[in-house]
């Protein structure tokens, strides 16, 4: 029981990380029909900026999180304005390659700024691990889980209750129709990019204390986040969070009961099975007919 609980905690921590990253993918996809393959790199930049702000400039955690999020969101806006909007023929495959190119570019730039080594930073609050029935949970994990759920909640609120959120949803459903009723869809796309990458930045800040961020951490995180978004249902907010937790917990259980070497293979096998038998994801928000 104690061991099972420990696997569960491990899975929850990783799962929350995957979940927040998946939210970024889903949110952007929902509003723009686009998958940003450089999303993992924005997470990486968030984590490294957080390290610089808290360790280098000695800024307290909360303002540092806010500053990092703003910085990364601003980068996302720049990316949309300079790269995505200027594309002459915005076909999905072209956009995929552009975001892949952006991920390489961002990784290269981060390598120049932060160097090639990994960094360490202390947990948000100095609290010893919490003992629950013999299993131990880091305080930082609680932070990660809480903040992920908070983000999903505020996004839900944004879409359901605010004008901008509803407008963004309208754009996602039909760009032309949204334009006809006076919604500036270009601004909406820009905004969606800002929110999505900003969320990537937050993900980076909360995982920085437990992951030892380095310039090359983004690729695998992005991939796992994408995987989680697909599992839960691309475009569905709660589905992404759920997909993240599911992926994290299954990975941990896989390590516990099967083999740690095959952990990643199992994650992807699960993904294939979901794609084959329930292609819309566990919570399917949209039919699988986009692109």
């Amino acid at each position: 029981m104690q061991e099972f609980l420990q696997y569960f905690f491990s899975g929850m921590t990783n799962g929350a990380i995957y979940g927040v990253i998946a939210l970024g993918f889903s949110m952007l996809y929902r509003s723009t029909d686009l998958i940003n393959f450089s999303h993992g790199e924005f997470v990486m930049i968030g984590a490294l900026t957080m390290v610089t702000l808290t360790m280098g400039f000695r800024i307290p955690v909360l303002p540092a999180i806010i500053m990092t999020t703003i910085c990364v969101a601003f980068l996302g806006l720049l990316f949309e304005r300079l790269a995505i909007r200027t594309v002459r023929r915005p076909e999905p495959i072209v956009l995929i390659i552009i975001t892949v190119g952006a991920s390489i570019f961002l990784r290269g730039t981060a390598m120049l700024i932060w160097g090639k080594d990994a960094y360490a930073m202390p947990s948000f609050t100095p609290h010893p691990p919490i003992d629950i029935a013999g299993a131990r949970l880091l305080m930082q994990s609680i932070w990660i889980i809480t903040i992920s759920v908070l983000i999903a909640g505020s996004l839900h609120f944004f879409y359901k209750k605010t004008l901008a959120g509803k407008a963004m949803h309208a754009c996602a459903i039909n760009k032309q129709a949204a334009w006809l009723v006076g919604i500036p869809f270009k601004v909406m796309i820009l905004l969606a990019f800002g929110i999505s990458t900003g969320m990537g930045g937050v993900a980076g800040t909360i995982i920085a204390p437990i992951t030892m961020p380095a310039y090359d951490m983004g690729t695998m995180l992005g991939l796992k986040g994408f995987c989680a978004a697909m599992l839960g249902g691309l475009g569905s907010l709660w589905g992404s969070v759920l997909g993240g937790f599911l992926l994290g917990i299954l990975e941990a259980l896989g390590v516990g009961f099967i083999s740690s070497g095959l952990k990643d293979a199992m994650a992807f096998l699960l993904l294939l099975l979901v794609l084959y038998f329930r292609p819309g994801g566990i919570i399917s928000a949209v039919s699988v007919k986009r692109f």
């Binding site: 999905p92 697909m230 992807f268 294939l272 292609p279 007919k289």
Partner: peptide
Amino acid sequence: RLTGYYLGMGTLGFGMI
């Protein structure tokens, strides 16, 4: 049978495995 990003993700998963 999949299309679009789902096909991309399916083939990606296969490649990773």
